[in-house]
Amino acid sequence: MPVALHPTGSGASRRELIPGRAAQMKEAEPQEHLVIFTLGNECYGVDIGDVWEINTMQEITRVPRAPHFIEGVINLRGEIVPVMDLRKRLGLPARPADQKSRIMVTKTAHNRLGLIVDSVREVLKLPASLIKPTAELGTLIDESFVWGVAHKDEQLIVLIDLQGLFDADEHEALDTMEAV
């Protein structure tokens, strides 16, 4: 799924593409409000608007015959919420949960969905000028869901389009259903 980063030729968006310090001198630098989490050594960011809440690990009820990247369901204050292992979904090697593991609860078009991540590092406001389009750098994960990358304090942050990821799952599910 191609992500049109800059569908218009407006001057504003073209300027954002130019990396550098010029933007920092501006007073009102546009900001990306991100939740930064880790999977292995890589740092990822998702739009804070997509994140409902962040929880420590809790008991997960396994659901037989679910897709392999679904760990099961949790009871989120009376609501039954499916939980996805983001590592498995993105094709990274699996790893057992530990003290630092978190369930990041997000919202899909249908219901809430928890994502297991290795750790949640911080909530960050990132100047938009630091964000580059994906093509410039390689990353471990499927690039169709990466809409940009940024460097901050020597650390590479990969920005993920969660809704795009869910949409893709859904289309796949629909395709399989139609094929049956």
Binding site: T61, V63, P64, R65, A66, P67, I70, V73, N75, G78, I80, V81, P82, M84, T108, A109, H110, N111, R112, L113, D169, E170, A173, M177
Partner: peptide, 18 residues
Amino acid sequence: KALGYPINKVQGLTGATL
């Protein structure tokens, strides 16, 4: 209760309950 997307169509299960 529905299991919710993306596991609402799992074979063998009608849903879940608290």
